[in-house]
């Protein structure tokens, strides 16, 4: 058994999976970085008092949430070039950029609905209590509603973030060399190794560890806000 873990095959596979997982991580963090703020902007659009903006935003959110992410990735990656609108940079860079854009848009739409629930979930009386105490709108947001919003948002957000950990594997559909793609490559042939099935299933270990860490961290954040109701 020990011989297996020290064998050159295992070492080759492991370093390939590691480099694939690095891309998975990249995609994960770039998506969060882009989708968290973009989602807030979209949520404001979907709550706008200007009806046309509200309709446009809500229709957009409906389309994005109502169609598969895989389809959105394929469309975003292939259509612009096929139609000669513009070309993504060649190779892995282009694939990574395209996939990040698709993920950010998709997740921002999901996040926007979570934000909307969080914002509308804070009772109106909280704002009024701030108003009658002479607070400005900004003070009310910063000192009163923001934290109550965050508290409401964290549990549904955790769900989405854990889904995102696994959704990153969808990038495989345009051959981004993330961890699943790497695992699969040893079935077909990579670095002189072919016909290996275990590397693909070994990728599950990466996902389990990563989602475990994410779950613990978000659980801590949730716990931190238990001091009030």
């Amino acid at each position: 058994m020990m011989e297996f873990f020290t064998s050159s095959t295992f070492q080759t596979v492991l370093s390939a999976l590691n480099s694939g997982f690095l891309k998975t991580l990249q995609l994960f963090f770039i998506t969060l970085l882009g989708a968290l703020p973009l989602g807030l902007i979209i949520s404001f659009g979907s709550m706008s008092r200007f009806p046309p903006l509200r309709w446009v935003t809500r229709t957009f959110v409906w389309i994005i949430r109502g169609t598969p992410l895989v389809l959105q990735i394929i469309a975003l990656f292939y259509i612009p070039g096929t139609k000669k609108w513009f070309y993504w940079p060649s190779g892995e860079t282009g694939r990574m950029i395209a996939v990040c854009v698709a993920f950010i848009i998709n997740y921002a739409c999901y996040f926007s609905e979570i934000y909307r629930g969080g914002i509308q979930g804070v009772p109106k009386g909280q704002q009024e209590a701030g108003q009658v105490l002479g607070m400005t709108k900004l003070q009310i947001f910063r000192h009163i509603t923001l934290l109550q919003m965050i508290k409401r948002i964290v549990p549904p957000m955790s769900n989405e973030v854990i889904t995102l950990v696994k959704d990153t594997s969808l990038a495989r559909v345009i051959a981004l060399q993330e961890v699943i793609w790497m695992g699969e490559s040893f079935m077909k042939g990579n670095s002189g190794i072919a016909g290996l099935v275990w590397p693909l299933f070994f990728t599950a270990v990466y996902y389990l560890i990563f989602s475990g860490v994410v779950t613990v961290l978000l659980g801590k954040l949730e716990k931190k806000m238990e001091f009030f109701q």
Binding site: E128, A129, V132
Partner: peptide, 28 residues
């Protein structure tokens, strides 16, 4: 500023849940 002529006590209290009783009183 004009609101400060009036104090308001609501039917449903509307205390700020994330602050202690004292901070509720002093925040504004």
């Amino acid at each position: 500023k004009k609101r400060l002529h009036f104090g308001m006590v609501f039917q449903s209290f509307n205390l700020f849940p994330q602050y202690t009783a004292l901070k509720n009183v002093t925040l504004a």
